[in-house]
Design a protein around this nucleic acid. Structure first.
Length: 196
DNA sequence: TAAAAGATCCCCT
DNA sequence: GGGGATCTTTTAT
């Protein structure tokens, strides 16, 4: 089934679960690279203190307030580029963070971008690693994921019928929501991280 | 203008 | 298991 603009106008939790097993494909930053999404987190706009959009629109989060189905890419901890998909109609700033993916195509290209990765399993396991393996930067913020140079496509593998879920990672607020979803049994998920 | 925190990753022990 | 790197964004003064 094709991933249309309409897909991104569903409830953000449904979009998050629906993105599992979808393919991210790009030739924007080099040779063709494809990766299968296996772990995501949902951020519920103005209802969610952990969402970047919670306190209203700022220059950084402008993309989140725009039309759905676009990439919101932000710079994290002065080191990493993390990628989200914008969900909900314009003005509704929900998003789904891509936390981990399974390398499918262009593995050599990804390995060149991630020299620290010892195995293919480490290539895209974690949001910062996902961004690095795809070669994302500020220039990729706002790109259309439906018709642009970095696309989300359905290659015939359905989302899991019963996705696993649990608390989101790395937050100091709104930690109670089980809005992290992943493909059960995938060896490419990032796994829980202990918090101090 | 300053200061603190941040949707992380990597290396060290 | 713990801490440092690194710098942008936001909020407070």
């Amino acid at each position: 089934m094709k991933v249309t603009r309409l897909f991104y106008e569903q409830d953000v939790l449904d979009v998050a679960r629906g993105l599992l097993n979808k393919l991210v494909v790009t030739t924007r930053t080099g040779p063709r690279v494809a990766a299968r999404i296996v772990e995501v987190e949902a951020y519920r706009g103005s209802d969610d203190p952990a969402a970047h959009s919670y306190r209203g629109e700022t220059p950084r989060t402008a993309t989140m307030f725009g039309p759905p189905g676009h990439w919101y890419v932000y710079f994290s901890y002065g080191v990493h580029w993390c990628a989200n998909l914008v969900v909900g109609p314009p003005g509704v700033a929900h998003a789904v963070l891509i936390r981990a993916a399974e390398p499918v195509d262009g593995i050599e290209t990804m390995r060149a971008r991630r020299p620290k990765a010892r195995t293919d399993r480490d290539l895209l396991r974690g949001p910062g690693r996902f961004g690095a393996a795809l070669g994302l930067t500020r220039a990729d913020d706002g790109i259309d994921a439906v018709a642009g140079e970095i696309r989300v496509v359905d290659d015939g593998i359905a989302p899991p019928e019963h996705p696993s879920c649990g608390p989101r990672v790395g937050l100091s607020q709104a930690t109670e929501h089980p809005w992290r979803f992943w493909v059960p049994d995938s060896r490419y998920v990032s796994g829980s991280r202990p918090r101090t």
